[in-house]
Amino acid sequence: MAYKSILTVVSTEGHQRQLEAAIEITRREDAHLDVFCLGVDHSQTGYYYAGASAYVFQESIDKAMAAAEDLEASVRKRLGSEDIRWSVESAVAQVGGLTTLIGMRARFSDLVVLTRPYSENASPDAEAVTEAALFEGAAAVLIVPEGKLPADFGSRILIAWSQSEEAMTAVRRAMPLLKAAERVEIAVVDPSPHGPERSDPGGPLCQMLTRHGVKAEIAVLARTLPQISDIISHRATEIGANLIVMGAYGHSRFREAILGGTTRNMLGKTQLPILMAR
């Protein structure tokens, strides 16, 4: 299996570098790139005095439509000189309607390319778009920090293996990249001796990947730092990895939003591309 349908969602002109990353991956995979230009209406009509909401709502919709049209024109101009297969579509939605809008498009994509949803430069809608692709779209999502891919992207991959269903889904979705990699490390952090793999953490996964021709090996890591995300990031840097593969949101989104979690911490801190799925 290869990635043949790649989707990227842009909502601001600042997503130009994200588009460049999507173009690069599309060319590499000989795929079709779908670009979805999003105009978001952030109005909250319930907060206006009687009679004013209709005017404010229409003005906000008009602005969102104009922004989406301008963005689509810009993307079409950029893609016009490319030798890849591509299509561009634009739409307008209120914040509450993003889930269905993005989820339906992500559902029929092999890979969704986005930037980090938790950073200083992230758009206000980045979190909603990312979660819609993961949950409603059930898609593999490649998060590219600051919209830039390493020159040797995918040559060395670290799998953050937690023996969970989400991690297994991410591995399966990442198989085209894993098979093409020069080296893949299955990193298991402080595994429980009573877990499903017991005394052989990562062993069954390594066997499965090896049978697919993946050059895989296992590293069992002690919990030397307070957060799992810090251990994973440190190990990725240590081995020179240029892609991390991991399951997303093993806990509920609400819990991670309030208490934090590995997914949220990784998306907020790491400078490496991450392929996530659940």
Rank of each mutant, 00 (worst) to 15 (best):
E166Q: 12
S155R: 15
S74I: 04
E217W: 07
E59F: 01
V184L: 00
Q163S: 11
L243I: 08
E20R: 15
Y249G: 00
V113A: 03
E89T: 07
E24L: 14
I143V: 14
L158K: 05
G51W: 00
V184F: 02
E72H: 08
A133N: 08
A216V: 07
A174R: 01
G97R: 12
L205C: 05
R116W: 03
S229I: 14
A151N: 14
L19I: 10
Q207N: 06
E59Y: 01
A73F: 03
R28N: 07
K179R: 14
G213Y: 03
Q44A: 10
I244V: 15
C37K: 08
A160W: 05
R107I: 04
I258S: 12
Q227F: 10
G250A: 12
E165I: 14
R17Y: 08
T26R: 00
S252V: 02
E59K: 10
A180E: 13
L275Y: 12
A241H: 06
R76W: 01
V40I: 04
K63A: 15
L275S: 12
E136T: 14
Q271K: 13
E13A: 14
S233I: 14
G240C: 04
C37Y: 07
A216Y: 05
P273H: 02
G203P: 03
R264A: 05
P201Q: 04
G250K: 11
G46S: 01
A31Y: 00
G154H: 01
V40N: 05
I186G: 11
G260Y: 01
T130Y: 11
L101A: 01
I239K: 08
A132K: 03
E29N: 09
T237L: 06
I228K: 15
V171T: 05
N121P: 05
E89Y: 08
Q18D: 07
L142Q: 11
S199Q: 11
S11D: 15
V9F: 08
I25A: 04
P117T: 07
P226L: 09
S11H: 13
R76K: 15
V40W: 02
E127H: 06
S123K: 10
D125L: 00
D200T: 10
I23W: 00
S81R: 13
G137P: 02
T130F: 13
R173K: 15
A219L: 02
P124D: 06
G260W: 02
F254M: 12
V188Y: 00
F135H: 03
G247K: 05
S229N: 06
F254D: 14
A50S: 10
R255P: 00
A248G: 07
W86T: 03
R27Y: 12
P191R: 09
P150W: 04
A140D: 07
E59M: 08
E72S: 13
Q44D: 13
I239V: 12
I6K: 07
E127C: 03
A216L: 09
I231C: 09
S162K: 14
S87T: 09
I6C: 07
T115Y: 09
I232Q: 08
A91G: 05
T45L: 12
G137H: 07
P193K: 08
S233H: 06
H251N: 09
S43A: 15
M168T: 15
T99W: 09
A277S: 09
